[in-house]
Design a binder for these strands. Sequence first.
DNA 1: TTTCTTACA
DNA 2: TGTAAGAA
Length: 127
Amino acid sequence: MRIGELAAHTGVPTRMLRYYEQHGLITAERHANGYRDFEEDTVELVRQICGLLDAGIPVKIIKQILPCLSGTDEIYFPVPDPEMLAALEEQRDRMTRKAECVLKNRDAIADYLDRVRGTEPAGPRSA
DNA sequence: TTTCTTACA
DNA sequence: TGTAAGAA
């Protein structure tokens, strides 16, 4: 599929998709006219990359764990390299802190909404 | 119309 | 990341 379609399927702007490709996060074939041709699988890959990026993981690290991403959301290292493990531990901690912050803000917003709406309806909250 | 590259804000 | 220009 072309970049526009991939963008439509993933919600990621073409600008970023080209950026991902530049950094080797995703790959694409080329049509005779120069247009990029992405595999169907790239849709899932882009979603995984987004998740990682949203979690605050730098492209540099993503490049390292990319070959360890299975078709789903598993991450495994056949041969753990100490440097990478250290980087991953740091990322894990950052994600933990970020998650706590997100939860905190979610509750604050949910609380505000409940009060503004008067009382009854408590919006859908997972936890 | 859509995409390409390069470059600036 | 968004947007612009010129070409295919």
